[in-house]
Amino acid sequence: MSMMNRFRTALLAATASLSLQSAYGAETVVLKGPVEIAPEAGASRQVLSECNLAASVEGAIRAALEQRNEALGKQASDGEAILTAQIVRINGMGGGGWTGPKSIAVRVALTGNGKSDVSVRISRATRNIMGMVSGTCPLLELAGRYVAEDVAKWLDAPSTAKLRSQVHAAESAPTTSEAASQ
Score class of each variant (00 low, 15 high):
Pro101Lys: 09
Gly95Trp: 04
Val120Thr: 15
Ala109Val: 14
Gln46Thr: 12
Val35Asn: 01
Ala179Pro: 03
Met1Ser: 11
Thr111Ser: 11
Gln21Thr: 14
Gly96Asp: 06
Ser134Asn: 10
Ser134Thr: 08
Thr84Phe: 07
Leu53Arg: 02
Glu80His: 13
Val30Ser: 08
Glu80Leu: 01
Gln67Glu: 15
Leu31Pro: 02
Phe7Glu: 12
Arg164Ser: 15
Gly100Asp: 08
Arg107Asn: 11
Val120Asp: 06
Ser172Arg: 15
Ile90Lys: 06
Val133Leu: 14
Val106Leu: 14
Ala64Met: 12
Ala38Arg: 09
Leu53Ala: 03
Arg145Trp: 04
Ser77Ile: 02
Thr99Asn: 13
Ser44Trp: 06
Tyr146Lys: 05
Gln21Asn: 08
Ala179Ile: 03
Glu27Asn: 08
Thr111Ala: 09
Gln182Tyr: 10
Ser77Glu: 13
Pro158Thr: 05
Ala161Trp: 05
Ala170Pro: 00
Ala43Met: 14
Arg6Pro: 00
Val106Asn: 06
Ala60Lys: 03
Ser49Val: 05
Glu80Gln: 13
Ser159Asn: 12
Gly73Lys: 10
Ser2Phe: 08
Ala71Ile: 10
Ala10Asn: 08
Gly79Asp: 12
Glu50Phe: 06
Leu48Ala: 09
Ala105Cys: 09
Leu20His: 13
Ala173Pro: 03
Asp78Trp: 12
Asn91Pro: 00
Thr84Leu: 11
Gly95Arg: 07
